[in-house]
Design a binder for these strands. Structure first.
Lengths: 225, 225
DNA sequence: TGTGTATTGGACCGTACGGTCCTAATTTTA
DNA sequence: TAAAATTAGGACCGTACGGTCCAATACACA
């Protein structure tokens, strides 16, 4: 709504993703959003906690715009979309030069044990994410082996990506994420019925190739704007 | 060394793994270790930061005792050891009932961007961990495909486990970790030459189309103990 | 014109934090 | 027994935190 509100939310999102929630003070946010003082801030948010919740929601919506939209894209083969989604996560991480991980993963690690309110909300975010992947896998079920467990696989994908982002941040090396992303694609391909997919396990480094005559070589940048 | 020192370290380790480093105050540690006052604490540690570093090292050594020792065990087949190692991570997590993740992953997420001193030390921990896995993979190379990239695979394993622990913590559901661990074993099995392993991936008929003459029809459970 | 809402600015409060200093009693060890 | 290290206890300091309260000004819209 209010222009100021989004301004505060934006500043807070940046700060929180850089230093975490606990280490981001209200005064920092005020400075970041160029407010006049505390009363100005508390005019829009009743507490720091509430600010955190809204940032989390907003962060998710942003991510949804960029990442989850790919998963829903109806014109592209579902499994190809999954690869593009993974590429998008890599691209997103590239923007911060390997620093600053998934905003959810960060908050999860910081607050999951300490703050039930955040834990529940983060859980919901992961769940929405996972369910999006599950429905994609359901859509792709003719291409997949019968016994593919969509719940498990979707969790695996998220866990691998979150873990990859974390390690990338620690090592300050983007190639870590790229390598894991490629391996993850191979793992997904392992579940594909047509063994054409199995092939990419060797020689094909660009694991984008999938069966069913799907378009290849789409550039990441064309998707992850 | 001193009995008190280890007592402080233990108390701090527990608190930090529960609430994170930033949210653990020196007073909390003093209370936890039943010290008389601050001067008593500062008699042993020159700062909270130094305490944190020592806790990190100690945490690693503990983990090494339990987890990494398995990776080195000379009497067991290397790939089997890898599976046992994964089981050990799951078991470790079970003890805290799904709460409290990998102490390294937690600290990594909390401090990687904010505190260079910790970042470097955590990176070193991951590196020691990864190198242990790499040397295991080197030992197992006769069983693996020629093109297996040990660096990449070791990173993938760590990332998947860290991500899994994180998600388990968020969902407060240990079965998440168990599922991911099982999938991770399948992923590793994918790199095995004689496909004792490969097969988890079921009734693929067209044997000829796959490279390296992979055999089929072995049960997953025979591999994934 | 008037009424509400947004904005500014600052004083203030209680609490917690990391850290220092000082004194004195107790235990260890040479 | 004397010196050295450990334990104890508390006062204190500067800073930062989340949050409240208040008074005054700007600006919208009806």
């Amino acid at each position: 709504m209010s222009d100021r509100r989004t301004q505060i939310l934006d500043a807070a999102a940046t700060l929180i993703s850089e230093r975490g929630f606990t280490s981001t003070s209200v005064d920092d946010v005020i400075k970041g959003a160029k407010l006049s003082g505390k009363s100005h801030f508390y005019h829009y948010f009743k507490s720091k906690e509430e600010l955190g919740y809204e940032v989390l929601n907003r962060q998710f919506e942003r991510f949804a715009e960029r990442g989850l939209a790919i998963l829903r894209e109806p014109m592209i083969d579902p499994l190809e979309r999954l690869n593009l989604f993974i590429d998008a996560v890599v691209a997103l991480q590239s923007e911060s030069g390997g620093r600053r991980g998934s905003p959810f993963g960060n908050l999860a690690a910081e607050l999951a044990d300490a703050h039930e309110g955040f834990r529940v909300r983060i859980e919901a975010v992961f769940e929405r994410w996972a369910s999006q992947i599950r429905s994609l896998l359901w859509e792709a079920r003719p291409q997949l082996h019968d016994d593919v467990d969509a719940v498990r696989l979707s969790r695996f994908i998220i866990a691998a990506l979150e873990g990859a982002v974390l390690m990338t941040r620690v090592k300050r090396d983007l190639s870590v994420l790229e390598g894991i992303a490629a391996d993850l694609k191979r793992f997904i391909a392992m579940h594909v019925r047509d063994s054409a997919a199995m092939q990419l396990h060797r020689n094909v480094e660009d694991a984008g190739s999938l069966p069913h005559g799907i378009a290849r070589h789409l550039s990441v940048s064309s998707v992850a704007v």
